[in-house]
Design a protein around this nucleic acid. Structure first.
Lengths: 312, 312
DNA sequence: CGGAACCGTGCACAATTGGTGCATGATCGA
DNA sequence: TCGATCATGCACCAATTGTGCACGGTTCCG
């Protein structure tokens, strides 16, 4: 909004690559390249240097981006207050979130907004947490629901985003129905230390949670298989290939041959689900209302759980 | 730089007219109109309203411009530090000032810069103080030398500009050679209370100084004639039509039949000459060097005066 | 009360900006 | 050494953004 090139530069500073920046912003790679070059020309400073087959920010560039973060924040604040003052409708509103969040939290939010604000076009994008942050920077979306983690965004995150905690989502174990502990109401992770585990591949947020859950116990689990989708993981478990961890928010679906059990014991691993916005964009009426709705939805989920807890 | 439309809007907020904004920014009137309309559209707020045959900012517009001032300041700071960090040359550099300042202060500065920075294109614009401020806003110039006054810029001035005092320029009286006090070394304004005066027309800064000099004495001078150029005023005085005030920096030229005399007495009217920059643009190497040179030049002028003082 | 001056805006048209798609050179991994 | 990947230059095209001019509304002045 303030200057499209700023968004491009900020995404680049996050991804470190022209190609990824192009993919995230929706521009072509040559457009990103040209934008950065043009930006350097008008500023009269070198922002990027060639490094290997890629390109990276110069120290002057990093310094400039850091200053830009403050300016963009102030701009967001101003734009939000302007939108707030005049009761004008906002044309577009983009939401992002990872799979379970999208299903459980964003879908109700989108439905609600569609009902109360028919003139606003709400767009949903499902994406991994890090990607959600980059989409926020790229101004493709205005609000994201992601799993909190230290790695996401790095140190620049606090200059660029604001977080609101929605809920803590505990992890459950998923066992084959034939597992020796399948009949227990709850299971301690220590008792599964020697079982073959199924986790997610790559260095996803889930994977980080997975290892964190065990390192706090001083246990190194044996990861026998890796899956990308939970659907797949659950199928593996159903086939008796091992055991797995599944966030409470994720549904088992119509999976056969598996049971979901609470985790007992000292360590109760959970993931923290937060809503993230660009810094300064709070105060915009749509953002404020959305956060409100999200928190109410989260509260409903929590109270529903306590009810189940009492039932069980 | 950050967004040309911002400069346009800021100039408009200062001038209050599309036509004057167009003249100052160098755009056509319809371009200014279109820019403001486009800005409103993308922001989703109404910035201006029709009023009479003109147009004025809405309260939301004023609020937005106030916030914009802060953002532009921060941008100037960032751009200045970026330029400073990388020893890149700045392509263009614009200077503005009113007539005497242009001659006595800006000309040496321009000559100096031309010598030390041959790659930078220095542009000089002579203009009245208020116009200089608007040209600064319009980013047509980067530094102005003007006479300080309360009226110039209004309350928004402190959010938009930074000042550096260069020197205090005392006013002298100019008398016809045949005047009864022409032989005195110095003259008290009170002794000229009943003489016919020649001043400047309109509500210029000089005119404001003129009335201020007398109101502090409780005297209302009789303004018999008005002139636009000092050249003209001096000619009027030489013709015996009255007496006048002339800043020390302004030269008498080769005027005949007139004498210049110091003002004695309690009230020693003077005008304060200051260098003005856009807020935040200090720190840019060119600005810093220019201010340095200006202050040295001012110092030279002052010490030259003390020397003359001792001679006389 | 009428006319002239002025102001801001809409419109046709032109120029510049800013985009894509493809080819190219350079670098890295296998 | 070959293929994959990356950034960038270039031809080309679209969209933005400028100008010049005509027009309607308002104010000032005779």
């Amino acid at each position: 909004m303030i200057d499209p090139r700023f968004a491009t530069l900020r995404v680049f500073s996050s991804t470190g690559s022209v190609a990824r920046t192009a993919e995230l912003t929706g521009y072509s790679a040559s457009a990103v390249s040209a934008q950065l070059r043009e930006l350097q020309r008008t500023l009269g400073i070198k922002l990027i240097t060639k490094e290997g087959r890629g390109v990276r920010l110069t120290s002057a560039g990093r310094h400039f981006v850091a200053g830009l973060d403050g300016i963009v924040t102030q701009w967001e604040l101003l734009a939000a207050s302007a939108r707030n003052a005049s009761g004008q409708v906002q044309g577009q509103f983009g939401l992002g979130g990872f799979s379970t969040a999208a299903a459980q939290l964003l879908a109700p939010l989108a439905a609600n907004l569609r009902a109360t604000r028919p003139d606003t076009e709400v767009q949903l994008i499902e994406a991994q947490p890090q990607r959600c942050l980059d989409l926020l920077l790229a101004e493709r979306i205005d609000l994201a629901v992601i799993v909190a983690s230290q790695t996401s965004g790095g140190s620049a995150a606090r200059d660029r985003f604001e977080q609101t905690v929605l809920l803590d989502d505990p992890l459950d174990v998923v066992l084959p129905a034939t597992h020796r502990l399948a009949q227990h109401k709850s299971v301690a992770l220590e008792d599964l230390a020697d079982d073959p585990w199924i986790s997610e591949s790559g260095q996803s947020v889930y994977r980080a949670l997975f290892v964190a859950a065990f390192t706090s116990l001083g246990v190194t689990p044996h990861i026998a298989h890796e899956a990308v989708e939970w659907e797949t993981m659950i199928a593996f478990i159903g086939a008796g290939l091992g055991v797995g961890l599944l966030p409470r928010l994720a549904t088992l679906g119509d999976a056969q041959n598996v049971v979901r059990r609470r985790i007992s014991g000292a360590a109760k691993p959970s993931r923290r689900i937060v809503a993230v916005t660009r810094k300064g964009s709070r105060g915009s009426p749509l953002i404020e209302e959305s956060l409100d709705i999200l928190q109410r939805t989260a509260k409903d989920i929590i109270s529903l759980r306590s009810a189940e807890e009492l039932d069980g």
